[in-house]
Amino acid sequence: MALSLKEMVKHEDLLTGGHRACAGCTGANILRQIMLTAGPNTVMGGATGCMEVVTTIYPYTAWKNSFIHSAFENVAATISGAETAYRSLQKHGELPQAAADAERMNFIAFGGDGGTYDIGIQALSGAMERGHRMVYVCYDNGAYMNTGIQRSSATPFGAHTSTAPAGSVKQGKEQDRKDLTEILVAHNIPYVAQTTPFHWKDLATKVEKALSCGGPAFLNILMPCTVGWGFPMERGMQIAKEAVETNFWPLFEVEDGVYKINKKPKERKPIADWMKEQARFRHVFKPGNESMLEHAQQWVDQQWDLLLKRETMTNM
C-alpha cells in the first residue's frame, strides 16, 4: 500500500480538474484523495449534493471511473444494488472482461451530511446491516450546503445556518450534533473510521482498510466548507487540522468493534480557538452568549472522554 506521497503521486488522478466545486473546496479534494487509493476499478455512487453536482454537470463528468447518481436519500441502496449485481454476474460468469480480470472491484457510495445523517440514514443503515462489500463515505460539512447552508443533524451547536440563523432572539442551532459515527459502530460492521483530508496518510490508510475489510465499511470525513462555515478559501486544510487538535473531530477507527484513536493531541486546545475562525460562530463570541461557548466546550470534552473510555473498554 502506497503510504508516501512519492508513491501516491504516481497513481492516476481519477477525479479530473474542470469540476465546478468552489475554489478551496475540501470536498473535491476528499474525493480526489479517495480515488487515488481506490483506483480505476471502482464504481462510485453519489447522493444528490454538492459533490455530485459539481463533478457531473452534463455533458461533463470529472469521473474517470464509473459513477452513478440517482437520488438524494438512496445512494447506499443504489450501490448495494451494484455490488449485488457484481456478485451475481461474477457467479454466473457474465462479468465484463475488465471487471472479471480486476483483482478487486470497489463499491463506494458518498453523500454529504444531509444525504447521510438525515435523509439517507435509512438506506445507509439497511445497506450496512445487509453486509454488502461496500464503503460508505460521508463528507460531513455540517449543513445542507448544496441547497444553501440549511441546518442538518450534523450541524454543531450554535452554528448559524440559513434555517437556524443567529438573530436577536435565536442564536443559531439549539441542539448538539448527532453522533453518526457511533450509530454506524452500533451496526457491528467490520470497519468504521473518522478522518479529514488534511491527514492524507490517515485518509489513504483508512480508505484502503475500508475497501479491503471484506464487508461494509463507513468513513466519516470532515469537510471544512469555505462558504458555509465562513473562513478564507485557502484555510480549509488548516481548519480540518485544528478540528482534530481541538478534539472536535477525533481521528479514530473501529476495527471489528475495537476502538483505536489515531491521534491524541498532547494538550486540549480550546474549541473556541477553532470556532472563532469561522463566521458561522461569530455570534457565539458576543457578550451574553458565554454559556454557549461553555456548552460547546463541555460537549467536546464529554465526547472526547467517552471516546477514550470506549477505546479503553474495547482494548481490555
Binding site: L14, T16, G17, G18, H19, R20, A23, T55, T56, Y58, P59, Y60, T61, A62, W63, K64, N65, S66
Partner: peptide, 23 residues
C-alpha cells in the same frame, strides 16, 4: 446525437472544462 438515458460515455471529459478563469 446523444447517448440515450442522459449517460456520459466520455469518462473524465470535465478536463475540457476550463475553470482557470475563476481566479
Amino acid at each position: 446525437e446523444l447517448p440515450d438515458a442522459g449517460i456520459i460515455t466520455e469518462a473524465g471529459n470535465a478536463v475540457d472544462f476550463k475553470t482557470g478563469d475563476w481566479r
